[in-house]
């Protein structure tokens, strides 16, 4: 299940674990990325709190946790080469994986068509 937030993040749910990243639209708006900070594996995130930071040459942007849960994995490629997040944000440039504390948390989020209309 692929879902999107109005903060321009995507989540792909497999079992009770969601992979999280920023959308292609967000990456285009941010421009060249030069630094990525990710949460620690094992961190308990609350929905709405800053989970990661993506920085372009000019600006730092917080990426908020779209759901509550425990971080199970982070993407070392995103940290080692932030350009990966810029060039393939919805693929190789994923940010982290989170085990949802509430499996119903994805319910209210946008599907791909709704997000495409939202980001237009």
């Amino acid at each position: 299940m692929l879902r999107f937030t109005d903060e321009h993040e995507w989540l792909k749910l497999e079992g009770d674990i969601a992979t999280v990243g920023i959308t292609t639209h967000a990456a285009e708006q941010l421009g060249d990325l030069v630094f990525i900070e990710l949460p620690k594996v094992g961190a308990a995130l609350k929905k709405g709190e800053a989970a990661a930071v993506v920085e372009s040459v000019k600006a730092a942007s917080d990426v908020y946790a779209p759901v509550s849960g425990e971080v199970t994995e982070v993407n070392p490629a995103a940290v080692d080469d932030p350009a990966t997040v810029g060039s393939d944000p919805q693929g190789a440039g994923w940010l982290y994986r989170i085990r949802l504390s509430d499996p119903g948390a994805m319910d209210g989020l946008m599907d791909e068509a709704a997000y495409a209309a939202f980001a237009k």
Partner: peptide, 12 residues
């Protein structure tokens, strides 16, 4: 996502 510097972010 939230900007704290110069560059604007979506939505416009």
């Amino acid at each position: 996502m939230h900007e704290d510097a110069v560059e604007p972010v979506a939505p416009a």
